[in-house]
Write a protein that binds this DNA or RNA. Structure first.
Length: 223
DNA sequence: CCAGACGTTGTT
DNA sequence: GTCTGG
DNA sequence: CCAGACGTTGTT
DNA sequence: GTCTGG
């Protein structure tokens, strides 16, 4: 769930996240994929700060080498206990992945799959809760990376993503501060299934699944 | 003990 | 770094 | 996430 | 069937 999404314009993203330190600079993408550098907001200094991190968390103990296991998504039920996530969680290494929408696969009766694009009805840009870590390579350099948290799907997303009823932990704008700066229990309380009434989803072309095909706005056009 | 895993979702 | 499985 | 590739040689 | 790369 949630292995592919789209970015929002950097300036809009900064505004939506209340970025006060740093800036994002990246080309707009309608197909962000795991292992890419993605824009995230962190609050190490107590206020929202722009950063770029690798999508796919590399634990601090892994010497900068990605695990074989996928760490692009972290189930909310596991963030406090999974070996790759518990330390970032307990250390408060939380971040927000900023996006304009995401893709989910829908499995048809005959087993074929159609990609759907999902966005919020009233927010052009939104944030998804994530965790980050810093891992030291053998050469002494550091790699910063992150994972995207998933929660149970709401009814709309359960219908779209029918195979594995999960969805990204989309944050209400009013919860951004608690997620970035709050106490553990307050941060945890912000991880909920976003209301379906505030979301929209439509089928898109399977072209989105072929990384070699152009990455432009046509990928999210309704089919 | 010590090697091996450490994850989520799920097709062609 | 820490847990699990053999 | 999905499309596309998928070997050998040498061995902690 | 499973891994890698985009």
């Amino acid at each position: 769930m949630c292995g592919k999404y789209i970015l929002a314009q950097a300036a809009k993203a900064e505004r939506a996240m209340g970025i006060r330190r740093g800036r994002w600079e990246y080309p707009l993408s309608y197909r962000v994929l795991p292992t890419e550098q993605v824009p995230v907001a962190v609050a190490e200094s107590g206020e929202p700060e722009a950063a770029m991190m690798r999508w796919g968390l590399i634990p601090y103990w892994a010497y900068g080498v990605p695990l074989k296991a996928s760490t692009i998504n972290a189930r909310v039920e596991r963030i406090a206990s999974a070996p790759s996530y518990r330390d970032p969680w307990h250390r408060g290494q939380r971040c927000i992945l900023v996006m304009g929408g995401f893709y989910e696969p829908h499995v048809n009766e005959d087993g074929t799959r159609d990609p759907f694009f999902v966005r919020l009805a009233e927010r052009e840009v939104f944030g998804v809760a994530g965790l980050w870590d810093r891992s030291r390579r053998e050469d002494g350099s550091y790699v910063f990376s992150c994972t995207l948290i998933t929660v149970p799907a709401n009814p709309l997303l359960a219908e779209v993503h029918n195979a594995k009823q999960r969805m990204p932990a989309i944050l209400a704008e009013s919860d951004h501060e608690a997620w970035l700066c709050g106490a553990l229990r307050d941060a945890f309380a912000t991880l909920k299934s976003y209301p379906q009434e505030l979301m929209m989803a439509w089928k898109v072309s399977r072209r989105v699944n072929s990384p070699k095909l152009p990455n432009d706005a046509s990928l999210i056009e309704p089919l």
